[in-house]
């Protein structure tokens, strides 16, 4: 331990135990990969058993549609009412994408800046944690009072939900400094900006991707929740509307669309992570 050779100036990295990363990239970047035909068949078989079994059970016990519609009814509703639901999917996507873009950009910039100043970071971190742990949905009624029933309150809510998630994970990434790599860049005369773009940013990328994924999922959650609180459009609005009219097949069709949306987001970041951050897994 008494080895002075270990350059004291570079010694500490996140020594304050402030690593508040939500999850590790390897948790999703090394996700399941499909290997063989047998696996594909098994996956299809399980799906058939679950969906078919539900169908049969609901028939056998004569469960009324308003309690739980059969998978076939949900499928039919999805096809027959898709043209009615589609515009609302569009509204939700607009809220999600614009809110997420704002939140992600602000979160990334703040993470990059704040991690450069350990003192500022110490002061700011509790508030960021507060933003992360406070469900931004709680603010939606207030936002609606202030901004009305349009896009604005929803986009703000999405940005507020996604931004801190992106920031806290990205900050973990930016804090994860390898002194050796920075010394390497410095030995070639790298400037602070070069060190940021060529060393810190790529090193932080896996955690940034984790942040973006969690942030976008939280954004989707918040967008749908905000739509359920008020306003006449969006998938969340459809959920409240269909359930109030006891149109359960349509209701579940919307739930299905939301699930697919969530899975697509996951897959998107999985693929990005595989392409750009696989060096870490």
């Amino acid at each position: 331990m008494s080895d002075i050779d270990a350059i004291p100036e570079f010694k500490t990295k996140s020594g304050d135990g402030q690593d508040v990363g939500i999850t590790n990239l390897s948790a999703f970047a090394s996700g399941p990969g499909i290997k063989s035909m047998a696996e594909v068949l098994a996956i299809i078989l399980v799906a058939v058993v679950i969906i078919g079994g539900t169908e049969i059970l609901l028939n056998v016990f004569a469960v009324p549609q308003y309690v739980l519609p059969k998978p076939s009814q949900i499928g039919l509703a999805l096809i027959s009412d898709f043209h009615l639901i589609l515009p609302h999917l569009g509204y939700t996507l607009v809220e999600l994408l614009s809110g997420f873009a704002i939140g992600a950009v602000v979160g990334l910039v703040m993470a990059a800046v704040i991690t450069q100043f350990p003192f500022v970071e110490k002061v700011v971190t509790p508030y960021i944690l507060l933003l992360v742990t406070t469900p931004m949905l709680a603010l939606v009624p207030l936002l609606i009072l202030r901004f009305g029933f349009g896009y604005t309150p929803r986009i703000i809510a999405v940005a507020l939900a996604a931004g801190p998630m992106v920031m806290i994970n990205a900050a973990t990434g930016f804090r994860r400094v390898d002194p050796g790599k920075i010394a390497l860049a410095r030995s070639y005369g790298a400037s602070t900006i070069q060190i940021f773009w060529k060393i810190r940013a790529p090193m932080a990328l896996p955690m940034i991707l984790v942040g973006l994924m969690i942030g976008s999922i939280f954004g989707l959650l918040t967008a749908v929740g905000a739509e359920m609180v008020g306003g006449g459009f969006g998938l969340g609005n459809r959920l409240t509307s269909y359930s109030s009219m006891i149109q359960m097949p349509q209701f579940f069709a919307v739930v299905l669309i939301l699930s697919i949306l969530g899975i697509l987001i996951y897959v998107l970041f999985f693929l990005i992570g595989k392409k750009w951050a696989s060096w870490e897994a």
Partner: peptide, 25 residues
């Protein structure tokens, strides 16, 4: 400088690693 352990940048392939000093300079 040659550092303890190779100190290559893991997100760059070998060509890009060798190019690194030139990118900086």
């Amino acid at each position: 400088m040659v550092f303890q352990e190779a100190n290559l940048l893991p997100w760059r392939n070998l060509d890009a690693n060798i190019n690194f000093p030139f990118e900086i300079k």
